[in-house]
Structure formats: C-alpha cells, structure tokens
Amino acid sequence: MASVSMESQTPQNPMGATPAKFVSPRTVALYAVLTALTTAVTMTLAIPLPTRGYFNIGDAMVFFSAFTFGWRAGMICGGIGSAAADLLLGFGFFAPITLVAKGSEGLVAGLLGPAYRGTTRMKILGIWAGGSCMVTTYFVGEWILFGFGNAALELPLNVGQVLFGGLIGLALSQAISRYRNQRPKTT
C-alpha cells in the first residue's frame, strides 16, 4: 500500500443518516500510530548535547513515514509527532518551529521519495531536499529567536542529525517494505 485512501469506506447507514465524510478508520489509526511513534522515538532515542540540548533520531521516523505512506503522513505525523516531543522534553518554545521544520521535511521527502517507484536514488534526493527544509527552517527560526551565534552553532549539528536520521530512515523504509510484501501467517 503506497498511499492511504483519504475517503471513508463506511457503507450507507441503514438509519438514513448521512455517513460522516471522515478519513478511513485505517488512516486515523495509522496516523495516530505514526505520530506517537515519531514522538516516542524522538524522546527515547535521544542523545543529550551540551549546546543544543538533544541530538535525536526522530528524523528517521519522519523520512520513514514519508517514504512508506506518502507526503501527507510524512507532513502530519512528522510535524505533529516531533513538535509534541519538543513540548514534552522541555523545548516548548521550539514546538512551532519544529512543526514547520519537520512538517516540511516530511512533505518534501514524501513528494520526492516515492516518485519514480521510489528508487533509492529518489529517496536520497528526498532526504537531501527534505533535510534542507528542516535545516533551513531551524536556522532561520533560531536566528530570529536566539541570534546568529546560536543558530550558527546549531547548523552543523542539524546537518549531522539529518544525515544520520536519513540513513536510518532509508534503511528502515526498505526493511519494512520487505516485511509488508511478506505478511506473517499468524499475528
């Protein structure tokens, strides 16, 4: 399943009421799980740093969601999941910047990555372009909030984080697509 249907598959209601125009229950469940997963991975697999606070591999989950489930999942789950992690870890004022940074990262990676049948080359392009959005957003946001000095200190860390997360996200999306092609016999 490369893309998730956004329309409800609810059958006509026998009571005569109009079925709600909601996204399908699959989508609701999937987005909930991907968002929570992004937050959990960002929070639990984080390495504290002296300047910035924390180096995390949340980007891996953003790229994974984008490559596997498309740009909507990448944008929504990546953006909201990462912003929630900021709030819960004590980086509250960062949340709006993170929402834009990671949301755009997921959006762009999700548009490029799966294109042309999602070759590794396209995914790498997606990581590069999506990662650039994230790094640029943080740089501009931090420049406005903290001044040029802090923003410049952060820049290489963010680049490193995107490369690391991108590598993991790429490997993860390939491993999971193998799994999805080979469904288990029992749960």
Partner: peptide
Amino acid sequence: LPPFSLTL
C-alpha cells in the same frame, strides 16, 4: 525465509 513470515 524472513522471520516475520513465520508462525509465532
């Protein structure tokens, strides 16, 4: 075989 294709 991939481990996830096996029974519990």
